[in-house]
C-alpha cells in the first residue's frame, strides 16, 4: 500500500532520517516509536504525501509520490485517513459536519451517508456531542472525532500520529481499541507513539509490528518491549 525505499529526509541542516525502507502491507498493524524529535511525525508526513523525500522513493499504491499531481494527492488523502496529535477542525461547523467533511469535499451527498454517520458517531461515542462545536470538545473527544473523520471515507490505510498524546490512560486504551477494530476490518494501521506501555498493552490484542527510529534509521524492535 505504502512503500518507502531508501528514503532520506533533511530539513536543510543534517539528515533527520536516512536510508529508511518500509513496506506497509494490506491489513498490517504497525507501531512507530522513538524518542521525541527522532522524526516520527516527519516519517508519518512522508507516508501521506505532506512531505516529499529528499532522497529515495515513496510509493503509494505502486505510484511514486513525485509523479502525483496535486489533485492526485487529494485523491490519495481520500484513501489514507490521518489523525494528528493536534487535530484541527473547521471551528465554525459542528462536530457532525466536521466528521462528514471528507464526504462533502469528495462530492458524495451527506444524506446518503446519514445512517453511516450516525453509526460512526455511535462507534466513537460522540452521538450526544454531534451538535457541539469543536472548541467545546475535550481532548479525548477531539481525538475520537478526528478518528471518525479519518475513517468515514472507509480508507485503506489509517495513519495516527500520537493519537493518545493528550489524553489519559483510559482514553488511550479506548482509542487503541477503536484502531484495533479498524485493523480487524482489514484496514492497514500505522500508529506513531512514544508510549511503550500502550504498545505493550495493545500487543496482547493484535499482531502488531513495532518499528523504532534510532539514530536516523528505522529498526524492527524485538522482544525487549
Amino acid at each position: 500500500m505504502i512503500e518507502l525505499e531508501n528514503v532520506a529526509y533533511s530539513y536543510g541542516g543534517g539528515e533527520l532520517l536516512s536510508d529508511i525502507s518500509l513496506k506497509l502491507a494490506p491489513g498490517s498493524f504497525h507501531f512507530l516509536t522513538g524518542p521525541s524529535g527522532s522524526g516520527k511525525t516527519t516519517l508519518m508526513k512522508l507516508c501521506y504525501g505532506a512531505l516529499l523525500p529528499t532522497a529515495g522513493h515513496v510509493k503509494f499504491f505502486n505510484t511514486d509520490v513525485r509523479a502525483l499531481t496535486r489533485d492526485d494527492v487529494a485523491m490519495l488523502r481520500r484513501r489514507v485517513g490521518v489523525v494528528h496529535q493536534d487535530c484541527q477542525f473547521l471551528d465554525h461547523l459542528p462536530v457532525s459536519e466536521n466528521i462528514a467533511l471528507p464526504l462533502h469535499v469528495s462530492g458524495r451527498s451527506a444524506e446518503a451517508q446519514g445512517e453511516d454517520l450516525g453509526d460512526l458517531l455511535n462507534w466513537v461515542g460522540l452521538t450526544e456531542r454531534a451538535g457541539a462545536l469543536p472548541a467545546e470538545l475535550s481532548g479525548g473527544e477531539r481525538q475520537r472525532a478526528a478518528l471518525a473523520r479519518a475513517v468515514i471515507m472507509s480508507p485503506d490505510v489509517v495513519l495516527a500520529d500520537e493519537p493518545t498524546g493528550k489524553v489519559d490512560w483510559e482514553m488511550s486504551q479506548r482509542l487503541l481499541r477503536l484502531l484495533i477494530e479498524l485493523n480487524r476490518m482489514g484496514k492497514t494501521v500505522l500508529v506513531a507513539t512514544h508510549d511503550l506501555s500502550l504498545i505493550r498493552a495493545t500487543k496482547a490484542h493484535v499482531q502488531a509490528r513495532v518499528l523504532r527510529i534510532a539514530s536516523r534509521r528505522i529498526q524492527l524492535a524485538g522482544a525487549d518491549l
Binding site: 496535486r70 489533485d71 487529494a74 485523491m75 490519495l76 488523502r77 481520500r78 490521518v82 484541527q88 477542525f89 473547521l90 471551528d91 467533511l101 471528507p102 469535499v105 469528495s106 473523520r149 471515507m153
Partner: peptide, 16 residues
C-alpha cells in the same frame, strides 16, 4: 490557512 490545511488533509482538491 487552518481551514485550507484541514480541507487538504481530508482530501479536498485545489479546485474545491
Amino acid at each position: 490557512a487552518q481551514v485550507i490545511a484541514v480541507l487538504r488533509l481530508v482530501g479536498a482538491t485545489d479546485n474545491y
